[in-house]
């Protein structure tokens, strides 16, 4: 547990989940506080499944999820979102037939703060998007699309943001920018982040804690600074 007051924001115990009866995650324990928590692992390790399960988009086979002490294990996705868990999927993170502005509006349908204030804040964070407001999200480039998806999730005023490989397939310029923004979102907005990533080097630069997933099991959970290359290689089964 790493939250300053000693109790974790998100507590996960014995999490098992998968698709169509096939178990992908085989008993994950996780405590996330006010921090950037990186989830690393090779393809098929279960990173996406873990985040989608935490977002309550995949049903659990076993285990519990507590958010701020409340048991959210059986809550539907829209209710966990309303409690402050934002989710940015790896793919299809925007509604292609809606404009950038409409995508953001949809994200801002929950929460009490003025939608205009929230839109102004996300444009401050990603200034390039302001010029694309009227453009259909389906016509954006990969990097722009990821920015919109991230802003859409931020429009929910989340306390915990689940980012699923936000830089996968992006150019190095976008990758650097995204990791800077992840730090900025955490530090200036106080949003905790669980970041699933393939790019271990970059992820470890911004993360406080790290979990290495290997074939659906937590191979290592520790301070990001303490993870050695050998441990990482072993976790990636290289």
């Amino acid at each position: 547990m790493s939250e300053a007051n000693g109790s974790a924001m998100l507590e996960v115990h014995g999490l098992r989940s998968g698709y169509h009866g096939v178990e992908v995650l085989k008993g994950i324990d996780l405590d996330v506080g006010a921090e950037v928590f990186a989830v690393l692992g090779a393809n098929g390790a279960g990173k996406t499944t873990l985040l989608a399960t935490l977002a309550r988009l995949i049903p659990l086979m076993a285990g519990t999820i507590h958010f701020h002490g409340e048991d959210v294990t059986r809550l539907p996705a829209f209710e966990t979102a309303a409690r402050g868990i934002g989710y940015v999927p790896q793919e299809k993170g925007v509604f292609p037939e809606l404009t950038v502005s409409e995508n953001l509006t949809i994200g801002g349908m929950i929460g009490r703060r003025s939608r205009e204030d929230r839109i102004a804040e996300v444009f401050e964070l990603f200034p390039d998007l302001a010029a694309l407001q009227g453009q259909l999200a389906g016509t954006l480039s990969g990097g722009e699309s990821r920015m919109v998806a991230c802003c859409r999730a931020l429009m929910q005023d989340p306390q915990l943001l689940l980012l699923d490989e936000p830089t996968a397939g992006l150019s190095p310029l976008y990758v650097d920018m995204f990791f800077e923004k992840i730090t900025e979102i955490h530090q200036t907005k106080g949003v905790s982040i669980i970041l699933a990533e393939q790019n271990a080097t970059k992820a470890l630069e911004v993360a406080d804690q790290v979990m290495v997933l290997s074939l659906g099991e937590a191979f290592a959970v520790m301070d990001a600074a303490q993870l050695t290359t050998d441990q990482l290689k072993e976790g990636y089964r290289i």
């Binding site: 979102a81 989710y87 999927p89 993170g93 037939e97 509006t105 949809i106 929950i110």
Partner: peptide
């Protein structure tokens, strides 16, 4: 209306709409 946008969103990508705090069902 925003409700119309929500209907488009639910039709286009229901899991994503659910993850935004909207009860798609």
């Amino acid at each position: 209306s925003p409700y119309g946008r929500l209907l488009i969103a639910v039709g286009a990508n229901e899991p994503l709409a659910r993850s935004l705090g909207k009860p798609a069902f």
